[in-house]
Every structure is written in structure tokens, then in C-alpha cells.
Amino acid sequence: MSLKIVVLAKQVPDTRNVGKDAMTPEGTVNRAALPAIFNPEDLNALEQALRLKDEHPGSSVSILTMGPPRATDVIREGLFRGADNGYLLTDRAFAGADTLATSYALSMAIRKMGMPDIIIGGRQAIDGDTAQVGPQVAQKLDLNQVTYVTAIESVKDGKITLVRSIDGGIERVEAPLPILLTVNGNAAPCRPRNAKLVMKYKRATAPMERPADGQMPYAEEYEKKPYLTVTQWSVADVDGDLAQCGLAGSPTKVKAVQNIVFKAKESKRLTGSEADIEGLVKELLESHTIG
């Protein structure tokens, strides 16, 4: 059975390297100020999709992402590793979306693409850590969901068997297709780029990434090779309701953002010398704090 698979991927700021200008005064993320990467668990999701494609000839893997034009990096990265095509949802009206407005936009794009058998994404993105978008997309498409998946065991006769993490253990579950899955970092890591695919797709771009004045390099190549044009959709292209998109469609509002100043304690400063350490240990023993 061939499968139609959509991978939900997000380009995220690398939150391990955050500077002071990372937030806007409105409390949303200033993405321009940070290095952008493929959200780690979404790469795990891509690998599970590619494995299914390997096992089920004739299957297709599409990458769907929402973001500014430069988020097409995520789609290119997916194409380099074996995805068949990509869809970029981009529109100023999507900006400032919370998880609910994001899932609305993604669900409208998926409807436009035609309902897949399997939608698969990372459990959560490292910039928000909310784990909400997957289940919310499932609800908006009225699909079943299984979250925290670590392995897909099999897909046959319209049913999928999965292993998932639960608090303190694991669960094996069986569910009918179509379904939405989120995978966590324990799922198999993504395969590396394939050199041939890198050659094939290195010039793949979304229209908005290209110069507007018509002086486009390699224009002929784009005409001959339609797969080098990444599908790009706006709110109108997916028949989206503006009131449900972006900041306007977000029930949660950021009231305040603070850089936390720790309430400084009067700390005793010690060196690493044996005398200092011994003094500390004796003090803690005498006060029965330890021992």
C-alpha cells in the first residue's frame, strides 16, 4: 500500500545561543536576530516518514512548513534527505500566531494538499516547548492522534502499529489510518543528506526568495525543472479566514516578558583549596545539614 505522508517541520531559532535582542518589545520572538535551524524532533519525524516511504514503494513525503521565506531552508534540507516536495506557508497575516492560530493555518494547508494517510511532526519545537501544534492540527482535521511516538512498527491493512513513550514506560498502540503522529527525540535520528539529491535540489527556491525585478539567475533551469520551485501559499491560497490567523487568531496574549533578575543571596565565596572545602564540609556536618 502506497502512503501519502506529510511531515510538519519548523524552522526554529537555536535557543542554545540566545542574545539580548532575541525578543521584540511586543514579547514575540525576533527570529531575525538568531541562527535558524531545523527543529531537532522534526528531523526525527522526517526520518520515520522516509522509512515508511522506503518500505512502501510509491509513497510520497511532502514537507509542510510555515514561516518567512527563509524557512524554505527547512524544505530544501528535507529534499536533500529524500522528501519528494515541499510547501511553504508564508504571509504577513500569519505572523505572531500562537499554537492555535498555527494549527489552523497548517490544517487549512493540509486540506488544500488533499488529505494524507499520515501526518507526522516532532513532539515539540525547541523555541516554545509546548507540544501543542500536533494535537491541535489533529483536532482541526478530525483525525486520531498518537503523541510521543518512538517507533513505527508496521503499517498494513489500513492500520498502524506504534511504540510510544508514556510517563515511566512505554506503550504499544494500534490505530486506524489516517492519523497524526508526533515523535520525540528517542525515535531514530535522521539520515544524512544524499549527495545526488543535494545536486538535484540545491537551487530549489520558493518564489518569494527570488529577486522581484525579473533578473533571475538560472531562469531557464527553473522553467525546465518544475521541481525546483517550492510551492508557496498565502492565507488566500489556502482559503484561510484572516480572523483565525496570526496574532488576530491567537487566544493567548503575552502580557509581559521579563529577563529574570535572581534575588541575590549573600553568598559565601570560597576557593577550590583543600582548606576551604574542608571548612565547608565541617560547617555542613556541624549544622547537621549533611551526614
Binding site: T15, R16, A22, G128, K253, K255, V257, Q258, N259
Partner: peptide, 13 residues
């Protein structure tokens, strides 16, 4: 939020 670099107060008005 944001990898633990800030603290955000969220409301649902």
C-alpha cells in the same frame, strides 16, 4: 520561554 532565557506572563482575555 524561549529555551528558558526569559519568563513570559500569558493571558487569555
Amino acid at each position: 520561554a524561549f529555551g528558558g532565557n526569559i519568563v513570559a506572563t500569558i493571558v487569555n482575555p
